[in-house]
Each structure stands twice: as structure tokens, then as C-alpha cells.
């Protein structure tokens, strides 16, 4: 049962108890991303403070456990970090997801997000995992321009 390895306890935990969910004020940028093949969607807001510090990431959306857990974990990882630090995590997460299960994840960079390593073996689900992270990257770009 390969998929059992995809549904890590940590992922299910984030799905059942999402962290930081709900749209909040104030924010610098808001984006809405959809996954047209499955209808998953997310609205994401970011608030960036002095020195590029991420003051808040807030989101709302609907989708499968993978997409929702990824958003929740992103919130935890981004809170309190700087924009630059989080972009490094986003890049490593993207590399892992697009690695078809053959990429060795850098746990030091990813932290808890390493739990998603199993998703990379399921090409149809990679987009689910990346939805929130791509939305975050987009929102960050918009907040600084």
C-alpha cells in the first residue's frame, strides 16, 4: 500500500486541525489559485513587515487532504520567518515535489514539510501539494511590487 505512506500522520493531523486557517486583515497582497483538473482552490493573503518579516499568512479554500494540509503546514513554516527564508523552503519543497519520488529531501530546510515526500510518487497529486505553496510565492511577489 503505497498511498498509506503518502497519508503520513502529520499530514492527516494538519488536515483535521488546520493551522492559521481563515482570511485575516491587514494584508499586502491576496491571490486566488485553482487546480483546474480537480477544482481545488485557495485564497491566500500575506502581510510582510519590516526587514521582510512575514507577519501573517492567512488562507481559505477547499480541496483534498493533501492540498489543505500543505496550506496549514506552510502557515506554520512561514510564520515568524523572513520572506527570503521562506522562499528557500518553497524552492526546496518544489524541487522535492517535482522530483518524481527520486529526490532526497533536505530535512534541515524543509522541517515538517518533509512529510510530503511520499506525495511526489503520485504525479496526479503533486499539484495538490503545491497549490498553497505556489499561491504563497505569487502573493509574496505581489506584496513587494
Amino acid at each position: 500500500m503505497i498511498a498509506e505512506s503518502m497519508y503520513q500522520e502529520l499530514i492527516l493531523e494538519h488536515y483535521k486541525h488546520p493551522q492559521g486557517r481563515g482570511l485575516r486583515e491587514p494584508y499586502d497582497a491576496e491571490v486566488h489559485h485553482v487546480n483546474p483538473t480537480c477544482g481545488d482552490e485557495i485564497t491566500m493573503r500575506v502581510r510582510v513587515g519590516d526587514g521582510g518579516k512575514i507577519e501573517d499568512v492567512s488562507y481559505d479554500g477547499q480541496g483534498c487532504s493533501i492540498s489543505q494540509a500543505a496550506a496549514s503546514m506552510l502557515y506554520e513554516l512561514a510564520s515568524g520567518s523572513t520572506a527570503g527564508e521562506t522562499l528557500a523552503v518553497v524552492d526546496e519543497f518544489t524541487r522535492l515535489m517535482q522530483g518524481r519520488g527520486k529526490v532526497e529531501p533536505d530535512e534541515d530546510v524543509l522541517g515538517d514539510a518533509v512529510a510530503f515526500a511520499g506525495v511526489a510518487k503520485f504525479p496526479a497529486r503533486v499539484k495538490c501539494a503545491l497549490l498553497a505553496w505556489m499561491a504563497y510565492k505569487d502573493a509574496l511577489v505581489r506584496s513587494t511590487t
Binding site: I2, A3, E4, M6, Y7, C38, C64, Q68
Partner: peptide
């Protein structure tokens, strides 16, 4: 429970192939 999760586990644990999503009828 989102249908994608339903379909994934049905397939992976039981070999049951169903369709999940909006079936081109959004």
C-alpha cells in the same frame, strides 16, 4: 472526506478504480 482522498485509497489499498472529481460536469 475529499473524493481525491477516497479515490486514492480505494485504488491503492483495494485496487478499486473509480472516478473522482467533477466528471466534466462542473
Amino acid at each position: 472526506i475529499h473524493p481525491h482522498d477516497v479515490g486514492q485509497i480505494l485504488d491503492d489499498a483495494f485496487g478499486v478504480a473509480v472516478r473522482v472529481g467533477h466528471h466534466c460536469a462542473r
